[in-house]
């Protein structure tokens, strides 16, 4: 993998750890002073000073630049842990498979989802920081997303089992194939509405019904012709590929070729001149 230039760690420190202090509440660390411009009055400030011990009174007056960058805050979870900053490449294990997730209870899956979500959030912010460089371990985003997808599938599986047992249906959003205005089939994902279909004028305008028409007929004939031509061209391409294969590998498994290309007649093609060409280039 490509190593990362060192200059970015410095910029990270500058960008990341300094603005975070403004988000931190004063109760976490008494060293940090938060200015309240709206509610502050000289009296209140004096009272605060008096209540604090003598050691800390000086630090309250000091500016936030005196705070060291080593302090941890909850906002640091949006970024890569500091141990990994100097690493050129970060390796992690594989993603969660469906078989692993099926062992886990619903509460565990619920917790795991938020762990993965946080990780993905962190990785996407890091990818944004590294937009002109290569992110160390770029496959991590894919791994997290794959395991999130698997988790969702497992949850859907369980819900489907419940609904099929109780109601006889999957309990998921239903789909159906509908004819569009121009005569093409479309997969329509059903939606929930408060009013029935015949009263919903907007919906009827958006999805007009199929009406047989002269223009539609003409369009459909041309469209089917186009599809047929595409199919024919694909068949010709397949035939040429098989000819080249027979030319290069005369001992190729003919039965396997016939299984792969059922539309072609392999024996007939192998007898033609195109399949008995000269030695391959």
């Amino acid at each position: 993998m490509v190593s990362r230039p060192l200059k970015y760690f410095g910029s990270l420190l500058h960008l990341v750890s300094t603005p975070l202090r403004s988000f931190r509440p004063a109760s976490v660390n008494s060293k940090i002073h938060v200015f309240d411009f709206h509610s502050s009055s000289p009296r209140q400030n004096e009272e605060k000073k008096e209540s604090l011990p003598a050691n800390q009174s000086s630090s309250v007056q000091s500016s936030p630049s005196n705070v060291t960058a080593e302090e941890s805050s909850p906002m640091d979870e949006f970024f890569e842990p500091k141990e990994n900053w100097a690493k050129g490449d970060i390796t992690v294990g594989r993603s969660w498979r469906k078989d692993d997730l099926r062992l886990k209870s619903n509460t565990d899956l619920h917790k795991l989802w938020y762990v993965l979500l946080k990780e993905r959030n962190m990785l996407l912010t890091m990818a944004d920081i590294y937009q002109f460089n290569i992110l160390p371990g770029p496959e991590r985003i894919y791994k997290v997303e794959e395991s999130m997808k698997n988790l969702e599938d497992v949850v859907r599986e369980r819900n489907r089992a419940y609904f099929e047992l109780e109601t006889g249906e999957t309990g998921e959003r239903r789909c159906k194939y509908e004819l569009t205005r121009i005569g093409l089939w479309r997969l329509h994902k059903m939606q929930q509405h408060t009013i029935p279909k015949r009263l919903n004028k907007k919906w009827l305008e958006k999805y007009p019904q199929f009406i047989e028409d002269e223009q539609v007929d003409q369009f459909l004939t041309l469209y089917r012709e186009k599809l047929l031509n595409k199919k024919k061209r694909a068949k010709v391409g397949d035939r040429k590929h098989v000819e080249e294969l027979l030319k290069r590998f005369p001992n190729v498994d003919r039965k396997l070729l016939q299984e792969k290309y059922p539309e072609l007649d392999i024996e007939k093609i192998s007898q033609t001149r195109a399949a008995h060409g000269p030695h391959p280039r």
Binding site: K104, S105, T107, N159
Partner: peptide, 15 residues
């Protein structure tokens, strides 16, 4: 470890 125990509930109901 295996923590899954089958229940007559959906995911959302259990949570």
């Amino acid at each position: 470890q295996i923590t899954f125990a089958p229940k007559l509930m959906t995911f959302e109901m259990e949570i």
